[in-house]
């Protein structure tokens, strides 16, 4: 792909996304027919909130290394949105949630989320920065003993160091929900966290916990894109085939379609 092609595609992508994000709000107005599938662990969050309220232990919300201003700005924003809803619901508690991060530029985001959602006074010392990665993981593993959070919700950008945090939380019997926009963190979360979202689900997490239209619109736009991409890729693949195998292309296409459908049917047998 040369530069120009990429640029043209990018412009198209952005334009369509803008349209989707804006129009999805109107479509969302007539809701009821569609709904969002449930994400892992979301139904546990109210439970944890209650535990937090009842025991006076804070929730621990972690951004990880998701930094504003850099590549994972969207991840940080999505996490902040997600946390905003959590904090809002934790409002009946006495302990403001503990928000931690290792990217200093995310600090204002965390402070903002706390201040907007937690309307009970000064929360400045509840958003805490620690130097990146292992220092952060170490500090969290130590704070697991210090602050004794009721539960950990880790959404953002984590690497393998997530293992240290989840391990120490696990030792103390503190439940955890983790999602990372990094693959190694995602894998660690899948194995060690009580509940793990996978990759992209980070961006749908806010809409899974709130009634906000905006979040829903995002999820809807993502789904539209997903459909477009899958269809487009299928068409492109067929074109590729037809280039190489002019004679066999349609047979192959049929074969591939048959395989796909068979796969779908086989797997749908389960449960």
């Amino acid at each position: 792909m040369d530069d120009t092609t990429v640029q043209v595609y990018s412009v198209l992508f952005i334009a369509i996304t803008v349209v989707l994000v804006v129009t999805a709000r109107y479509f969302q107005a007539r809701r009821g027919r569609r709904m969002q599938r449930q994400l892992a662990g979301m139904d546990q969050i109210p439970q944890w909130l209650m535990q937090s309220i009842e025991t006076g232990k804070p929730l621990h919300l972690a951004f990880g290394g998701a930094g504003v201003g850099g590549d994972n700005t969207p991840a940080a924003l999505a996490a902040a949105e997600f946390f905003h809803h959590v904090i809002q619901n934790a409002d009946a508690s006495d302990m403001p949630p503990l928000v931690t991060m290792s990217a200093p530029a995310t600090l204002p985001l965390g402070q903002g989320a706390l201040r907007r959602a937690w309307r009970k006074g000064n929360t400045l010392s509840r958003a805490q920065w620690t130097p990146p990665d292992l220092a952060y993981a170490g500090a969290v593993s130590a704070s697991v003993a210090d602050d004794e959070p009721a539960a950990h919700i880790m959404a953002g950008s984590f690497g393998a160091e997530l293992a240290l945090m989840l391990d120490s939380a696990d030792r103390r019997g503190q439940p955890s929900l983790a999602v990372s926009d990094r693959l190694d963190g995602g894998a660690v979360a899948y194995a060690l966290a009580d509940h793990a979202l996978i990759g992209e689900e980070l961006f749908a997490a806010p809409s899974a916990i709130s009634t906000d239209e905006g979040g829903r619109a995002d999820a809807a736009a993502l789904d539209v894109w997903r459909g477009l991409i899958i269809l487009g890729a299928a068409v492109l693949l067929l074109l590729e085939f037809s280039k190489q195998l002019p004679l066999l292309s349609w047979q192959l296409a049929l074969g591939a379609a048959a395989v796909l459908i068979a796969l779908g049917l086989i797997f749908s047998r389960r449960r």
């Binding site: 569609r34 969002q36 990759g199 689900e201 809807a220």
Partner: peptide, 8 residues
């Protein structure tokens, strides 16, 4: 797999 919206 990630598809979010499901039919009611």
């Amino acid at each position: 797999y990630f598809h979010y919206q499901v039919r009611a």
